[in-house]
Design a protein around this nucleic acid. Structure first.
Lengths: 139, 139
DNA sequence: TTGAGTGCAAAGGATTTGCAGGTTC
DNA sequence: GAACCTGCAAATCCTTTGCACTCAA
């Protein structure tokens, strides 16, 4: 896997962002003309393949990508109105992670390989929460 | 909401199937010519709207639909190779449901409305498990 | 009767693929 | 220099929309 300008740009962006982000948004935030939309698709697929990014889904089925920091899974609520992504309460996240871990273990025990999962919450954020300093799109 | 032939057929199929199923598969299992693919899309959207079916996603982002039996959420593993759907261990399902319930409560408490979630597991089933009597496509 | 539902065709949006030209190693 | 990567264009796949017709209520 070669280190190229577009890949550096995409990865840098994802690291700074630290949240599931749509391909369009990723592409939109890269310097104009620095990287084709198709290249973003291809790079993210490659990144997912080697495990440095994780893919999840928006409630309409389109893809979201985020940096994969080991198994420190994070879970989020995505606002259906604004697309803003807010992390779930840490304690509950820990609990969820634990339960999901058990399930994945159980599946491995049954002989499943390459087990992955997707867990997303969607809802309409209360107006005051919208635009919180959680997700400030990098200009 | 009117009771029509296509709706009866789709609902009957989903009830018998009892598992998340793709639109294509649903359409493919209905009597040929009995219902247009577009109608399947529209019916499922309508069913989802009134809450009698639930939507989830396959690992490639396409939709899966299943009958919504109250709030007795069920969670599944989808085999990436065969698309077969197998329910998660009941105890673990209960635990997962409980945790997710807490998270949704927490979100409501924060002011979120219309909270929904998606939780899916994907993996490659061990060969002996493939073709288990879990998902017998209705002829 | 009459408006919700349907089928067909065509549009739309997201993602993938083909191929020539560029860039990394 | 060779292989991998990129950009552009076009194709593909899934899903939605428009419109005239049909059918359940």
């Amino acid at each position: 896997m070669r280190i190229t300008q577009p890949r550096i740009a995409i990865l840098t962006f994802l690291i700074n962002r630290g949240e599931p982000t749509s391909i369009e948004q990723i592409h939109g935030h890269l310097a104009v003309g620095s990287c084709d939309l198709v290249t973003v698709y291809r790079c993210l697929a490659a990144f997912e393949g080697i495990g440095i990014v994780r893919r999840s889904f928006y409630h309409n089925g389109t893809s979201l990508y985020e940096i994969n920091l080991g198994d420190t899974n994070r879970y989020h609520v995505v606002c259906k109105t604004t697309d803003r992504v807010v992390p779930i309460d840490p304690e509950l996240t820990a609990e969820l992670r634990q339960t999901i871990g058990k399930i994945e273990e159980n599946l491995h025990a049954q002989g499943y390989t390459g087990v992955t999962h997707v867990a997303e919450f969607f809802g309409i954020a209360p107006a005051p929460n919208r635009g919180a300093n959680v997700t400030v799109p990098t200009p």
